[in-house]
Simulated scan of single mutants.
Amino acid sequence: MVFSFILSPVAYGAKCCIRNLTFTLALPFSVAGAAYAEPVTIFALGDSLTAGYGLPDGEGLVPQLNLWLAEQGADVTVLNGGVSGDTSAGGLSRLAWSLTPEVDAMIVTLGGNDLLRGLQPSVTRANIEGILTEAQVRQLPVLLIGMEAPGNFGPAYKEAFDQLYPELAAQYGAQHIGSYFGLIDPDATDPGQISEFMQADGIHPNAAGVKRAVESLGPQILTLVDHLD
Results as ranks from 00 to 15, higher is better:
L67M: 02
T50S: 03
V2C: 03
V210Y: 08
G112L: 04
V83Y: 13
A208H: 10
Y157M: 14
A70L: 03
D201Q: 02
T124R: 09
E134R: 15
F3K: 11
H176V: 13
L92F: 02
Y53A: 07
R117V: 06
I18W: 06
I18P: 00
K158H: 09
A51Q: 12
I18A: 14
G90M: 11
T133A: 06
G82W: 01
D226P: 01
I18K: 05
D229H: 08
E148L: 02
F161S: 10
Q139Y: 02
P28H: 14
F29E: 12
L140P: 00
N152S: 08
D114R: 05
Y180N: 07
A174Y: 05
L69V: 02
Q120F: 06
S98T: 11
S216F: 04
E196P: 04
E129W: 03
T109Y: 09
V225S: 08
M106N: 02
I107G: 00
E102N: 07
E148P: 05
G112E: 08
L69I: 04
N66A: 08
A89P: 05
A213D: 02
A74F: 01
H204P: 12
L67H: 10
F181R: 14
W68Q: 01
V10R: 14
G173K: 08
I177V: 15
L99Y: 07
L99H: 07
A200F: 11
E134G: 01
Q163F: 09
E129P: 01
L69H: 01
A89T: 01
R212E: 05
Y165A: 12
H176A: 01
G85L: 10
P121A: 07
Q175C: 05
D190Y: 03
G192V: 04
M106I: 13
V137A: 06
Q199W: 13
S216E: 06
Y36A: 15
E167K: 13
V76G: 06
D162R: 00
A14D: 15
L132N: 01
V31I: 14
G173H: 04
F161R: 04
I6D: 14
N20F: 03
R117P: 03
G58H: 02
Q220E: 09
S216V: 08
Q193W: 10
V2P: 01
G202I: 10
R19T: 13
Q163V: 05
L132W: 10
Q199A: 12
T109H: 11
A96V: 13
T223V: 14
Y172R: 01
A34W: 05
A207V: 08
F5H: 14
N127G: 11
L61S: 00
M1E: 11
L140F: 05
S8R: 13
I203H: 00
S88F: 08
S98I: 05
D190M: 07
P56I: 09
A74G: 08
V142K: 01
E167Y: 03
Q136E: 15
P101I: 10
